[in-house]
Amino acid sequence: MRCHWVNHDPLYITYHDNEWGKHKTTTHLLFESLTLELMQSGLSFLTVLKKREAFKQVFFHYDLEKLSMATSNDIEKWLSDASIIRHKKKLEAVIQNASVVVQIEKNQSFYDYLLVLINRQLPNFELNDPRLDLDISRHIAKQMKRDGFKFVGPTTLYSFFQATGFINDHDEACDFN
Rank of each mutant, 00 (worst) to 15 (best):
E19W: 01
F176L: 12
C174N: 04
N124P: 02
P154M: 14
N73W: 10
T26E: 12
N97F: 00
R138S: 06
T71S: 15
A173K: 14
I85P: 02
A54F: 01
S159Q: 12
N168H: 03
D169I: 13
F160S: 05
Q162G: 08
F31T: 06
I85N: 07
L127Q: 03
N73P: 12
T164P: 09
S33H: 01
L79S: 00
E76P: 09
H61L: 11
V152F: 10
N18Q: 14
D175M: 05
D81C: 07
G42Y: 09
F149A: 06
Q40L: 10
E105G: 02
A163H: 00
S99D: 11
L117F: 09
A163N: 03
T47C: 08
P123T: 05
E19A: 04
H8C: 11
A54N: 13
S44M: 03
T156C: 03
T71I: 08
K142I: 10
R120I: 05
H87Q: 03
I136Q: 03
S41C: 14
S41E: 11
D175C: 07
D17A: 06
S109A: 09
K89S: 12
L132E: 08
L30D: 03
T47M: 04
P10G: 03
Y15D: 06
E76H: 02
Q103L: 14
L134P: 06
L64S: 04
I136M: 11
H87W: 01
C3R: 10
F151G: 02
Y158V: 15
L49R: 10
P130Q: 14
K106R: 15
T14Y: 14
E105V: 00
L49M: 13
C3Y: 08
V48F: 01
E19I: 09
I118R: 08
Y113N: 07
I118C: 01
Q103E: 15
H61G: 02
Y113C: 04
A141L: 13
V6R: 04
F176D: 04
Y111F: 13
A98V: 07
N124I: 00
D147P: 05
I84A: 10
D9W: 01
K24N: 12
H4T: 07
A93P: 05
I85E: 01
I85G: 00
E32P: 08
L46E: 13
N168S: 08
T27I: 05
Y62Q: 11
I140W: 14
